[in-house]
């Protein structure tokens, strides 16, 4: 599996660390909302875990140290999109 880092170019996946589902992990709930306990349970523990397209967070630890959002098919491991996590984060995610 090779990941095309927007800063470093295409590198072997062994240079990266995996965190998990980007859409869940980049949408940390607001601790002040009335249903915060349920929302945090879902945020910390529940995952869609789809067979198919998955947007996920990878960290380029042996390269530029950026967090990336990688779109990958979990059935084939084929990667279609790699972007920096900074943009979606700035656009509303709480990281």
């Amino acid at each position: 599996m090779r990941i095309d880092c927007p800063y470093c170019g295409e590198r072997g996946s062994e240079e990266f660390s995996y965190l998990g589902d980007a859409d869940t992990l980049m949408a940390r709930p607001d601790a002040d909302r009335p249903d915060a306990a349920a929302a945090f349970h879902a945020y910390v523990y529940l995952r869609d875990n789809p067979a198919g397209r998955h947007r996920e967070l990878w960290y380029h630890g042996a390269g530029c140290h950026s967090w990336l959002v990688v779109t990958r098919d979990t059935r084939t491991h084929a990667i279609t999109v790699v972007i920096s996590a900074a943009a979606p984060r700035a656009a509303g995610g709480r990281g």
Binding site: G20, D21, A42, Y45, L46, R47, D48, N49, P50, A51, T74
Partner: peptide, 18 residues
């Protein structure tokens, strides 16, 4: 390993990754 897929058929989100 297919638990999330099958559980999704009844709308269950589980504390699990495959």
């Amino acid at each position: 390993g297919n638990t999330s897929r099958v559980a999704a058929m009844v709308g269950l989100d589980l504390p699990m990754e495959s």
